[in-house]
């Protein structure tokens, strides 16, 4: 008796919206990694002195580079939103024998994210 085996197509991840979004989520890490390369070079240029730093700022202001950062920001935001929504499934917190609802943990995650972002903005730009 011959059972029929259906192989996975190479483009299996295009088969449903959920799979496509999964791939997009995974690929955000590539854009984040790319940004961090640009960022590390930024730090190196700071150590290189005022003129090297100014030249890098000038390069960062190029339209193509700004566009890259906008795309990277979109990717980073998508990573943050999906990540912070998925953490409650991994870490189960129990208070007094009842499980803390996932929605509460997600809300707390977003609150911390907002607070940290504001704090860092203030430290760099505000003072």
């Amino acid at each position: 008796m011959k059972a029929l085996v259906r192989p996975m197509p190479i483009l299996w991840w295009l088969r449903s919206r959920a799979y496509v979004l999964f791939m997009v989520r995974e690929l955000t890490s590539v854009l984040i990694a790319a940004y961090l390369v640009v960022f590390l070079i930024f730090l190196q240029r700071i150590a290189g002195g005022p003129s090297s730093y100014e030249r890098y700022l000038h390069w960062l202001a190029q339209p193509a580079v700004l566009a890259f950062h906008l795309v990277a920001l979109a990717a980073a935001l998508y990573h943050s939103v999906t990540w912070l929504q998925l953490t409650p499934m991994t870490v189960v917190i129990r208070l007094r024998d009842r499980r803390v609802p996932a929605a509460t943990i997600v809300a707390a995650n977003f609150a911390v994210w907002g607070a940290l972002s504001v704090l860092i903005l203030w430290l760099i730009v505000g003072t």
Binding site: S29, I32, Y35, L36, V38, F39, F42, I46, G49, P50, Y53, E54, L57, H58, L60, A61, V65, L66, F68, H69, L70, A72, L73, A76, L77, H79, S80, W83, L84, V112, W113, L116, S117, I120, L121, I124, V125
Partner: peptide, 28 residues
């Protein structure tokens, strides 16, 4: 990455080159 990268991109990728934040990004 989730907590810290977005604000970092906003600062070094957009604010610094576009001059938002006035004297905040002076080298010294």
């Amino acid at each position: 990455a989730a907590f810290l990268v977005p604000v970092s991109i906003a600062l070094t990728g957009l604010a610094a080159p576009l001059g938002w934040g006035g004297t905040a990004f002076q080298h010294a």
